[in-house]
């Protein structure tokens, strides 16, 4: 309907990360338990727009999605223009914690997808007491590479096109076409080398094999959900990871791939609703 204004509100918050102020763009809607959502590598927080306008979830949760520095409407830090971007475990963790602190969020739930799912595991290992619950989508302690990231940023290949074409195969077939197109569009808009820089964390710096056994879900519940069509973080990767974490809950989602919240929002809703309900139930007990 022409003239319809969505209830999502977008603002900027100044966040000190690694000694420098970053101007972080975030969107939010709802009231209740803070639920911070982390986008995938090389994309931005628009992936969460469907969750952000869910009428039921936003009655119980203050849903917040932010663009990581270098992504979407969050620029690189002032001092970093011209430098090669490489996301590390330390900086990624610091960014999330600093963002939550800047907004004065009280023990938020954090839900991340892909690299966001991986860093959720690191939050569970090192900072569990700061969070009410953690949700990893397409998350595992490690997964086997399936292409050479050197192709993502070179002058003789269009970065947006190749990034989009690579991830297009991670979307489940026969989902809503417009949702597929929109998911891929995010990858066509990333800055040069940003997807590649995110994958430095994913492939090199963020290997959590041998560490996830330290996670204590009694301190902070952990939910892992992976789409059956994700051949990057496969269901087997997630189930293997969950098997090494006593009490972790793992779910394989049918007819979904690597981008459940954006590639097929209705299908994803069916899987995330019970998780959010479980978190609510824990608050009430």
């Amino acid at each position: 309907m022409s003239g319809f204004v969505e209830p999502i509100v977008g603002r900027y918050v100044h966040v000190e990360i690694d000694g420098e102020i970053n101007r972080i763009y975030f969107e939010e809607n709802g009231t209740g338990i803070p639920l911070v959502c982390l986008h995938t590598a090389g994309s931005d927080a628009r992936q969460w727009r469907h969750l952000l306008i869910d009428e039921e979830f936003t009655k119980q949760f203050r849903i917040i999605a932010f663009d990581m520095p270098w992504h979407g409407k969050s620029n690189p830090p002032d001092s970093r223009y011209g430098n090669e971007y490489r996301l590390t475990t330390a900086t990624y963790t610091a960014t999330i914690r600093a963002f939550c602190s800047a907004l004065r969020l009280d023990r938020p739930v954090v839900m991340g997808c892909s690299i966001g799912g991986r860093i959720v595991l690191n939050l569970a290992i090192s900072h569990a007491s700061e969070f009410r619950a953690l949700i990893g989508l397409e998350a595992a302690d490690f997964q086997q590479p399936w292409y050479d990231t050197a192709w993502l940023n070179r002058p003789d290949v269009h970065g947006g096109e190749v990034c989009a074409a690579l991830v297009s195969g991670l979307i489940a077939p026969n989902g809503p076409q417009v949702a597929r197109d929109e998911t891929i569009w995010g990858y066509k808009q990333g800055g040069p080398g940003i997807f590649k820089g995110d994958l430095y964390f994913y492939r090199v710096d963020g290997d959590l094999r041998g560490r996830v056994g330290q996670i204590d879900v009694r301190q902070c519940p952990l939910y892992l959900l992976t789409g059956e069509y994700d051949f990057s973080c496969t269901p087997e990767d997630t189930l293997r990871t969950a098997a090494s974490i006593p009490g972790a809950k793992a779910t394989i989602m049918e007819r979904l791939g690597h981008f459940p919240m954006s590639e097929n929002p209705a299908q994803f809703r069916a899987y995330i609703a019970p998780v959010l309900q479980d978190i609510l139930s824990r608050r009430n007990t």
Binding site: L170, A172, E228
Partner: peptide, 13 residues
């Protein structure tokens, strides 16, 4: 297509 058989690079993997 079945999972893991739905993309050219899934097939190479």
């Amino acid at each position: 297509p079945p999972p893991g058989w739905h993309d050219l690079l899934a097939l190479t993997k």
